[in-house]
Design a protein around this nucleic acid. Sequence first.
DNA 1: CTGAAAGCGCTTACAG
DNA 2: CTGAAAGCGCTTACAG
Lengths: 328, 328
Amino acid sequence: MKQTITAKDVAKLAGVSQSSVSRVYFEGARVSAKTREKVLAAAKELDYRPNEFARSLITNRTKIIGLVMKGIQNPFYPQVLKQFTMAFKQHGFSVLFVHTNNDELQSDDIETLLNYNVAGVVITDATMSLKVAETFKQNKIPLVFFNRKLENSDFYSVCCNNRTASQQIAKYLLSKGATELAYIAGNSNTSTSLEREKGFYEILEQNQVTFSKYSSDYTYEGGYQIANEMVDEKQLPSAIFVANDIMALGVIDAMREHALKIPEDLKIIGFDNIEMASWPAYQLTTWEQPIEKMVEATVEYLLNEINDYTGFAKTIEIEGVLIERKTT
Amino acid sequence: MKQTITAKDVAKLAGVSQSSVSRVYFEGARVSAKTREKVLAAAKELDYRPNEFARSLITNRTKIIGLVMKGIQNPFYPQVLKQFTMAFKQHGFSVLFVHTNNDELQSDDIETLLNYNVAGVVITDATMSLKVAETFKQNKIPLVFFNRKLENSDFYSVCCNNRTASQQIAKYLLSKGATELAYIAGNSNTSTSLEREKGFYEILEQNQVTFSKYSSDYTYEGGYQIANEMVDEKQLPSAIFVANDIMALGVIDAMREHALKIPEDLKIIGFDNIEMASWPAYQLTTWEQPIEKMVEATVEYLLNEINDYTGFAKTIEIEGVLIERKTT
DNA sequence: CTGAAAGCGCTTACAG
DNA sequence: CTGAAAGCGCTTACAG
């Protein structure tokens, strides 16, 4: 059996009460400098560490954030995970990592979060049913959808400026002389893909430019496959806006296998600015998502809500920037 | 304030004692079918959920595994993270994700793990000092080094068969007619890079083949840079074994920029078999790490130790397999 | 500022 | 099989 050092042990050694030991470790409690000193010395000697569970049991709050991810395959997300972990750590919060296989969170996915009474939740790359959403509301657990948003949502979400970004992408492509354009969508039920499509088309319609739409799934393989189908159709556009980078790389690889030159025969632009976009083999022009700022905004909201729950909803859109490389 | 539903509430509604409610949710406790039924019905009505913290407090064990990662940038690791999360979930364990920036775990990295009294720990892509290691031993927290091992370790570690794999890689390269070989090492203080180097050289020495060594850092940029330096030296080998895939991709891109043809002018082989290795742009020959089996072995050991702590140490090496593609 | 005491929501001997 | 009661390691009014 592992012998746990408790506040009682420290109290005994320090010659103070257990309450005093507790006060030393509880932020905001008042203790005299002398008591603190004695306690800290004793604690150090015994290698004391306050039990988070006892703490949480009594305060009914935890220092754990649930982070739910689906698309960890996409190199965009490891970056996001890292940034979140570091940001939360800075504020004393730990990350409970939950992986879901479903586009829509299932109740067994959130079981863990509820059991551990997480202080807040970040949901990345997935949505949830209204019923599941209600569970969080009832438990007053603040929630942020990261890089995705619910329709008619009364939940907070943090995104890149998908729509206006795509408008600028359309304008950029037109300025490069593209005449027939195409959009390759990601998973059709995602707000990101929908918003990007919307912004893109708005500008094309304004300029009365022909365009077509193809559907894929935000994966490399998906991009690769749809590109092959496009080539088979024999009617290639002059420029393609691919809904995210990882798909765009698949498109590039497929097009090159058909001996198409990029950007000469075909211009391609992605979205995200993942690490590989800058690799010499690709040099993909893309739209950079400001991950750091997005994470910052998410953490700030969450921390505020944890501190004082209001449940207010809003969609925060953070401006990204066009990264021009060699595929356009 | 959020009103928490407790076992007491359920007990009242079900007309039984609180202990009986507890027994229904505690695996291994005996309850009559009738009691269980009443309790479950009441619990469902109230949406009751046992408080994990109260539970952990009393049992002094948790259902949380600490997963420490460093190299999340390397596409190999998101895969590992996903597999671990899924495997642990299957056994009722949740994952506390910790990110470290250091090759060697620092005490503030493990603070969280200790505070939450995690049931076990997986450390990926990092090592730790003997002092830190002792802390885990003292607290009888089982630990596995995943894809890395400590020198003179009395800790369990799970790896691919790095050394014998590299022997086979050497043989394979020789069989392909390579005459002057090179090894590009990853971080020099990692067991993986060291073992791969050792196995590779063993065969080359046996066959009295000339070889040279270059040092890099397991990143794409590192591979790209060292390849540029190699070209500047004007004495290229006929085949390079690169210690991992992501570096190998950097090497390929750099070599191609110098108009070198792969595999005609230069053969390249990697290690890991990350997703990108199979992309048409690369078609990298590599050694596949059997992630699934490695994860399985780790989880099995950890679960056994959690159940009955022995602290016994061993290095498990799991056989990978050569994946031949087009760079050799 | 400090200590004694109650209590967070559970598990687990102990009787019955 | 079931209930009453003690106790896990803390926080937090309440007196002093």
